[in-house]
Every structure is written in C-alpha cells, then in structure tokens.
C-alpha cells in the first residue's frame, strides 16, 4: 500500500524524553527506509531535492539537472558515491572514501547531529513520526533555526541566515511506500557506469567529452546543491 504522510501542523510541546518514548511507539515508518521531498530556497531561487534511504543506501536526487548522488557504506566502513546522470542513463563510480559519521549524516540527514548539539532545543511538539524538536542558535555569523524529527532522524525545517544570504530547506512530503522507495534504487540498474579514474581515457565518448570540458558536479561534502547542480558553499 502506498503510504504518503504529509508533514503538517505542529502539536503541543511536552517534555523531550517522555514524548520521544511515546512517539516511538506510534511511528511505524522506518527511518532507514523512507523518502523525503525538500524545497530549497536561497534568495529568489527555489528547487526541489528528494532524499531516499533504503537498505543502508542513501540517495539525493535533484531534477535540474537530473542528477542522483547515491552513497553506500562498504564492508570496511568507507563511503562510496555513485553519481547518476538520469537523463543520459549514465553514471560515475567514485573510489570509496574513508569518512566520519558527520559526513554520512550530511548525506542521510542533510545536517549533522553535532550541529544540533550546538543549538538550543526550544520545544518538542507532535507525536509519533511527526514528533518535532525545534532548535535555534547562532554559530559564528550564522543564525540557525532547525526543526528536527527524531523518530525519523529527518530534517523538517532548516534556516541558515547571515548578513549576505538566507538558505531555507523545508520538508514538503514524506514518502513511506516501500515499492516507491525501492524503485528509486533500482531504476539505475541498466545505466552505463564508469570509474572516475577512467574518464580521462574515454574522451571519444561524446557524453564524457562534454562532461570533461564542462566540468560537472562532484562528490559533495554538504549535500546542498544550487539549481545548476553545484554545491552550495
């Protein structure tokens, strides 16, 4: 059964610990297998990004350009990126990288848990999957407002602002349907893949030649992308 949960209004706040325990019993969505649709806003620019988690893998999908970054953990604990160019049904396999938990959290949650520890928790609202903890704080020149869904280990709202710009990320849709989620990780099955190390030997391929001359999106530390696919600094 297709199950889509719309993240809507906030419920009243109660104590963090007791509420978390109660909410856990009521949330039947696995934080390991879900989809989340986000809207990014930076100035007048808006774009959507989909976050998918499935069987230990995580994928971030942007539509313009159509790029999917998919990470998995190796047996040795390294993190490995495959970058899919969905319009072209091509992909680049990167070498696994030794990476810490914070980097994996950026891929799976968009923010690190360390950031949350640096902010002040204001209130807990909602129950079950929609239990939310609101944070605020200032780090350096940046002001933060964050709403975190602890049962889903998922970002609901994020705003980072400074004198120059404001970046807002809003969760607009939560997807729990297993078929939809697994399909996101199976659709690249027939894509033609290449090792990044082999790109230089494949300039006769028009697609890779174009990519080589243009440069293209690279493995991102932050996971935040501009509308043209480049990482937000």
């Amino acid at each position: 059964m297709k199950k889509t949960i719309l993240v809507m209004g906030l419920l009243s706040s109660v104590s963090l610990l007791s509420h978390a325990h109660t909410a856990h019993q009521l949330c039947d969505v696995s934080p390991q297998q879900l989809g989340a649709v986000y809207q990014f806003t930076q100035g007048v620019k808006h774009y959507d990004m989909k976050l998918w988690r499935y069987n230990g893998k995580v994928a971030q999908v942007i539509s313009q350009p159509a790029i999917t970054n998919q990470w998995n953990k190796t047996v040795s604990g390294s993190q490995r990126l495959v970058q899919y160019f969905d319009h072209y049904q091509r992909g680049i396999e990167y070498q696994p990288q030794r990476a810490n938990d914070a980097q994996w959290q950026r891929h799976t949650q968009l923010i690190t848990e360390q950031l949350l520890t640096q902010l002040t928790a204001d209130e807990v609202v909602g129950t079950g999957c929609q239990q939310a903890v609101k944070y605020h704080g200032k780090i350096g020149d940046n002001q933060y407002q964050v709403t975190w869904l602890p049962q889903l280990q998922l970002l609901k709202y994020y705003q980072q602002s400074n004198a120059k710009q404001t970046l807002t990320i809003e969760l607009t849709r939560l997807i729990a349907d297993q078929a939809t989620i697994s399909q996101q990780f199976n659709r690249q099955h027939d894509y033609q893949l290449i090792d990044f190390a082999d790109i230089g030997d494949n300039e006769s391929d028009p697609f890779w030649a174009k990519m080589i001359n243009m440069g293209y999106v690279t493995q991102s530390a932050g996971g935040f992308y501009q509308a043209d696919g480049r990482e937000i600094k």
């Binding site: 990167y94 070498q95 990288q97 990044f196 190390a197 440069g215 690279t218 493995q219 530390a221 480049r230 990482e231």
Partner: peptide, 11 residues
C-alpha cells in the same frame, strides 16, 4: 594517498 579523492573537489 588516494589520488582519486581529487575528483571529490571542484576543478
């Protein structure tokens, strides 16, 4: 020591 990590960064 992995040269290919360079690909993780912008040109």
């Amino acid at each position: 020591t992995d040269a290919d990590v360079g690909y993780d960064h912008e040109i």
